[in-house]
């Protein structure tokens, strides 16, 4: 089962390696990890996407809590949170395929942010389903490379994550 852990940490050197090291040590493979400063520059938010059963996830959450620089951990419920990921897709484009690609991009409300004679770079934001959808539709044109930020997430409504 997929879990999205939102971890509020002190914005200090070494914090990320403590977190990623702990997952590795306890045998978890991180699907994605995104880090950035919060509204308070002293704090950072780490969003970790991880696959695992509830019991081991609870154990790894407890272990994360023991890290001195970790302030708060939320295992986000998909029903009461919003998740997004930003992806840059460099795809082969010829004069014959270009307009077809642009159609796909429009359907997904994505953007073209770079054009060259043989490629296009597409910027797309969305949930995992949307991202996987556009990637699968662009794949037949020839993907040159795909770069993803990893998932970020926030609680819905007034409640703070």
């Amino acid at each position: 089962m997929k879990h999205t852990l939102s971890v509020l940490v002190e914005n200090k050197p070494g914090v990320l390696v403590r977190i990623s090291g702990l997952f590795a040590r306890r045998g978890f493979n991180i699907d994605s990890l995104a880090v950035g400063e919060t509204e308070d520059p002293m704090l950072s938010r780490v969003t970790i996407s991880v696959d695992g059963q509830d019991q081991p996830i609870e154990q790894v959450t407890k272990q994360l809590h023991k890290l001195i620089n970790v302030i708060k951990i939320t295992d986000l419920d998909p029903n009461s949170s919003v998740t997004r990921e930003l992806v840059l897709i460099k795809v082969h484009a010829t004069s014959e395929t270009r307009s077809e690609i642009i159609q796909v991009v429009e359907i997904f409300r994505a953007k073209i942010i770079d054009v060259s004679a043989s490629t296009l770079i597409v910027e797309v934001t969305g949930t995992k389903d949307k991202i996987e959808g556009i990637i699968s539709l662009l794949r037949p044109f020839g993907l040159v490379e795909v770069v993803r930020t990893g998932k970020i997430a926030i609680s819905r409504g007034r409640k703070r994550t």
Binding site: P13, G14, V17, R18, G21
Partner: peptide, 16 residues
């Protein structure tokens, strides 16, 4: 040293 000892300390500091 900070990296080598990470998994075996309660906490650690590199004083910069």
């Amino acid at each position: 040293t900070f990296g080598i000892t990470l998994p075996v300390v309660k906490h650690s500091y590199l004083v910069t």
